[in-house]
Design a protein around this nucleic acid. Structure first.
Length: 767
DNA sequence: CAGTGAGCGAGCTTCCGCTTGACTT
């Protein structure tokens, strides 16, 4: 019988720690919070000092049962959850639910999973810090009050199933405001003037130190350069340094994985979880940039051995964000000697990124030399300037270059020729290119996480789920935006001649960027109008201050909640009783046929165009907005287009063909089967002949899909699908073992496979 | 891959932070 029971949050952590502690200790995990506010209803007794009503949820009952029986038999129970607000609460809930005796219970904490850290923790146990627990309860109760009182307001005033909360509503607000900045943005253009200069030691490019707005001005300038003499006016050489970035936290890992590997935040976290469970990396949900002494030392050894002593520089990083709770280390490899780990390709690419970033964080600065050459001219016009950058010692750049969200400015030559002040240079060519200012960038998942972290909103464990939630609620979409072509002018002076040419470029193409939907905008406006406090970017920071005071014992949690709840609940009441429905209604014009008003608005089922009023005798006509159309931007003409579908375009095999646009794009409906129209075919103009072609092609493809048919059973088919060959029988599909050639299967062997797989119970589907 | 779209009323939805499952068509 083990005398000691240690409880930690994560099973992977339990496994590691058990090895360190040896005999006499059993280490178990509680899988995070074991108890929470009841899911149904608000579950807070508001009249009685906001007493929370907790319950052990169904999926935690088994764990709790097991821990309870182990705790009964143990002499000492060590509560080793994380040392932060949530971790303290987990320990407290454990002690309550498991009914632990105080004399048998010890609370311990450690920030790194090393043997010495754990043994030290065991030597220094303490009691549960009730103030910290109260701070967590205040956090929990506040979030429940906000979420469960605001959401129903939206159900009533906007659309059912919507949600609002301290974190998600502000995240959507960020996107809405950015989108409006983009919409209001007016690009302006100017000419960037670059000259190519020849010096006995080499040819290089230099940019004119002034942007010119008007084309006329550019011609004047180029003309005056025709007869110009150029010489080196000034030369500066400045040494500079680049520092490596801190090792990864959850948020910076998500950002770099998005920039460098193109992973969504969810994908990054899934892969990191696998690496963590395999023991390759430390915990992946952290806000700390701290490295343990063990890590510092082994990074040093690896750097010295692989790159040499001059590449090592020991560094300790400090966390900037003041909302950080630092219960863990930074994300790093558990073993720096492993530059690669055996895993699938995405996992190993993520691991390599983590390895490089952590190692680079302990490497020396890169040393650079920045050179600027200024060229004057005999016409007293602005100077041309050439900028060059040479790496004199690569340092950490040997292995890691940090990504950036901003688009890179066009870079100039790395290496400039050796020149001296007073040297004459020959001008070979001057190119003036029209450039346009760019609207602020839309957020990516990762750059939104970065912004939220800066505002102190959300936690490492919630960044990815929050992004998922706002998309699931339909507030935000990840859209592929096709670029538009734009004309621009280039004016070139070469061999005493000025030539202009008109060129085109593609601009504004975007993918994986987040943009708010109409619902997102309407909900944000509605909440901004009625719940200013909650929507304030500083709201979380200000309540965090209160939580800190509670944690330090200066303030009672119920008092804080009381102060918050009174005015909040008041505005909920006022809004419910006095506020009109929020529909985002916009008048587009009159219908040329019926002269009825046409409006765009949110209906119960999303954004629509409505012709006529609901109070009219004749029922109004409705049409849903398409993908890419928004209430803000749609015009009358586009709105009228929407009413031209569905179209009946003729008959085929005695059945009617109906063309329309559905969830998956344009389609032809024929004999109650759907045929998608390809991109070349426009649903508004497609004719019967073209549609018949589409139908025939689809039939041909479907026929090719079938590998084998059986006379014994017409619904039994071997087909070729997206994931390879499979058996379909009745309404269900069945796998074919990898080693089997599908062509060789006969009727009996198919039925055996089906029977085998029918034995495995079908799991309930998630809704 | 429809059609719904008002308002009533039944009963449903919803928050944020800790954790990892068990599903594969």
């Amino acid at each position: 019988m083990k005398k000691n029971l240690v409880i930690v949050e994560s099973p992977a952590k339990a496994k590691t720690i058990e090895k360190f502690l040896g005999d006499g200790f059993v280490v178990k995990s509680c899988f995070g919070h074991i108890r929470d506010l009841n899911k149904k209803g608000i579950s807070i007794d508001i009249e009685n000092g906001f007493k929370p009503i907790y319950e052990v949820s169904d999926d935690k009952k088994k764990v709790v049962q097991e821990l309870k029986s182990l705790a009964k038999k143990a002499e000492t129970i060590w509560l080793a959850s994380d040392e932060d607000r949530e971790g303290e609460a987990i320990s407290w809930h454990l002690s309550e639910v498991l009914e632990l005796e105080e004399s048998k219970t010890k609370r311990i904490v450690f920030h790194e999973i090393t043997k010495s850290a754990i043994l030290k923790a065991i030597e220094n146990p303490r009691n549960i810090n009730k103030d910290l627990v109260d701070a967590q309860q205040a956090r929990r109760i506040l979030d429940r009050l906000v979420g469960y009182e605001l959401s129903p307001v939206l159900w009533k005033k906007v659309k059912p199933q919507l949600s609002a909360g301290r974190v998600q509503s502000v995240a959507v607000r960020l996107l809405v405001e950015r989108e409006r900045e983009i919409q209001a943005f007016q690009p302006s253009s100017s000419f960037k003037i670059v000259g190519v200069f020849k010096h006995p030691n080499g040819t290089f490019r230099a940019e004119l130190d002034k942007k010119n707005e008007a084309e006329k001005e550019v011609y004047g300038l180029l003309n005056s350069f025709k007869s110009c003499q150029f010489e080196i006016d000034d030369l500066t050489v400045k040494p500079s340094q680049k520092k490596p970035s801190a090792p990864f936290t959850t948020s910076t890992l998500q950002q770099e994985a998005s920039r460098k590997l193109g992973f969504s935040v969810t994908r990054t976290m899934l892969l990191a979880q696998k690496l963590y469970e395999a023991g390759h990396i430390t915990y992946m949900r952290t806000d700390s940039v701290n490295l343990s002494d063990f890590a510092l030392q082994s990074a040093e050894e690896v750097i010295n051995a692989n790159y040499g002593k001059e590449y090592h520089q020991k560094r300790k990083y400090n966390t900037k964000s003041n909302s950080a709770q630092e219960a863990h280390e930074a994300i790093r490899p558990t073993n720096f000697n492993k530059k690669n780990v055996p895993a699938d390709s995405s996992e190993s690419r993520l691991y390599e990124l983590i390895w490089k970033r952590a190692i680079a964080s302990q490497m020396s600065n890169a040393l650079l030399e920045k050179t600027t050459i200024a060229i004057n001219n005999s016409q007293d016009k602005p100077l041309f300037k050439a900028k060059g950058e040479v790496v004199t010692f690569d340092g950490f750049l040997k292995i890691y270059l940090q990504g950036s969200d901003e688009e890179q400015e066009e870079t100039f030559d790395d290496l400039l020729p050796k020149v001296s002040v007073g040297d004459g240079v020959m001008n070979e060519k001057i190119t003036a290119t029209q450039r346009f200012t760019r609207h602020p960038a839309r957020f990516t998942e990762a750059s939104l996480v970065k912004k939220l972290e800066e505002l102190g909103i959300g936690r490492p464990s919630t960044y990815a789920p929050t992004i998922t939630t706002i998309q699931k609620r339909g507030y935000v979409e990840k859209e592929i935006k096709e670029g538009k072509t734009r004309n621009y002018t280039q004016i070139i002076l070469q061999a005493q001649e000025i030539k202009a040419q008109n060129l085109t470029e593609i601009t504004g193409a975007e993918k994986n960027k987040l943009s708010p939907t109409d619902i997102g905008k309407v909900v944000t406006d509605f909440l901004n109008e009625n719940f200013k406090t909650i929507m304030d970017y500083g709201f979380t920071a200000s309540v965090e201050k209160n939580f800190d005071e509670i944690a330090q014992g200066y303030k009672k949690w119920s008092k804080m909640i009381d102060e918050f709840y009174d005015p909040f609940h008041q505005s909920v009441d006022t809004t419910l009783n006095h506020s009109a429905r929020a529909t985002g209604e916009r008048f587009l014009g009159e219908d040329p046929q019926s002269s009825k008003p046409i409006i765009a608005r949110i209906s119960r089922f999303g954004p629509v165009i409505q012709i006529g009023k609901t109070e009219d005798n004749e029922k109004p006509k409705f049409a849903n907005l398409r993908k890419g159309q928004t209430i803000d931007t749609i015009n009358l003409e586009e709105a009228l287009e929407l009413f031209k579908l569905p179209r009946i375009i003729g008959n085929f095999e005695e059945n009617e063909m109906k063309v329309s646009i559905g969830r998956f794009g344009p389609y032809v409906l024929h004999d109650s089967k759907f045929y998608s129209l390809n991109k070349e075919l426009d649903p508004y103009t497609v004719n019967a002949e073209e549609a018949i072609e589409v139908i025939k092609e689809k039939r041909k493809r479907d026929a090719e899909k079938i590998i084998k048919k059986f006379d014994e059973e017409p619904t039994l088919l071997i087909q070729n699908g997206r994931w390879g060959p499979y058996i379909s029988f009745g309404k269900r599909n069945y796998k074919i073992p990898k080693e089997t050639d599908p062509k060789t299967l006969d009727y009996e062997s198919c039925m055996t496979l089906i029977e085998e797989q029918n034995k495995i119970p079908k799991k309930r589907k998630k809704k």
